[in-house]
Design a binder for these strands. Structure first.
Lengths: 157, 157
DNA sequence: TATTGTTATACTCTATAACTATA
DNA sequence: TATAGTTATAGAGTATAACAATA
């Protein structure tokens, strides 16, 4: 391989990863602003959009301490986007479910983020897109990244 | 292509991008904590580590409003990690430079983030790593992502 | 007048420590 | 006692609007 010829043109993987992440965060933030959600609120809604979750489980998925999550839920509940429930079999616990309005908002948000991210790779040759999906899936699977975004139906087994 | 056979195993590009970003942010946050930097402070230091920048330029690169940047700089200056200077030719302006201690910290931080990110792809076959670098570089180049991380010497032309 | 940056204000986010209620 | 979650507190981050100084 003639590495010299590409050195100045191809970013090192670490730099590429950071910038890719910066790009995604930037798109995510734009869509949040458009739907009047903070990034934290949007992420919370995305995690509960397909099924309710308990507070501890959510804190783990979102990598938050539980008091921080409590506050986040307070604010988004005050806006009427989620509902706290107490399961009958354990009255210490709380499960979180999107309200009908929250569900509508998160679905619209999710769809637009997806669209915008797919645009990001739309200009690549189809072979590159497939390669990218394959390799990126490998990376996040090996690293056990929690399912903070995605459809239940389209998860790797 | 027999898409059906891989549908359940390969994530869609949008989902993969979000999770990759989540992974990177998570690693970034861990390294920040280790070096006692907030993510915003670390990013600021990374942007000025190779050369001083003006406040407006920084606000643009970091996608912050200027009052937010002023506060960020106040806090990090109070910790003695950066220095504000006024260039003689325009006394309205302010340039930001890491202090010697700030420079040492950001270089250590930068090196560890790089290492950890390179570990993330270290288990992939070499061909996958090269493909990933190539395609990710294309994406961030097409999308004009600002150089928030990287060496001056290793930028695409 | 336009530009650079800061101050004032308000809110969200998030951590640690201490607490309450249930198991 | 251990677990689930909340309250109290404090500080960081960030936005908008109003301001000051310089060009």
């Amino acid at each position: 391989m003639f590495r010299e010829t590409t050195l100045a043109q191809t970013l090192r993987a670490d730099v590429a990863l950071i910038r890719l992440s910066f790009l995604v965060q930037s798109i995510y933030a734009q869509m949040c602003a458009k739907h009047d959600l903070s990034p934290a609120q949007a992420q919370l809604l995305c995690v509960i959009k397909d099924r309710p979750r308990g507070m501890s489980e959510l804190a783990g998925l979102l990598r938050l301490e539980r008091p921080g999550l409590s506050g986040l839920v307070d604010r988004i509940e005050r806006r009427g986007l989620v509902r706290r429930d107490t399961p009958v079999h354990d009255r210490r616990a709380v499960t979180l479910t999107p309200s009908p309005r929250g569900q509508k908002i998160v679905e619209a948000f999710y769809a637009e983020v997806s669209d915008r991210l797919l645009e990001v790779i739309a200009h690549l040759p189809a072979a590159d897109r497939r390669q990218f999906e394959r390799i990126a899936t490998k990376i996040v699977t090996i690293e056990c990244v929690p399912a903070v975004f995605g459809d239940e139906a389209n998860e790797p087994i």
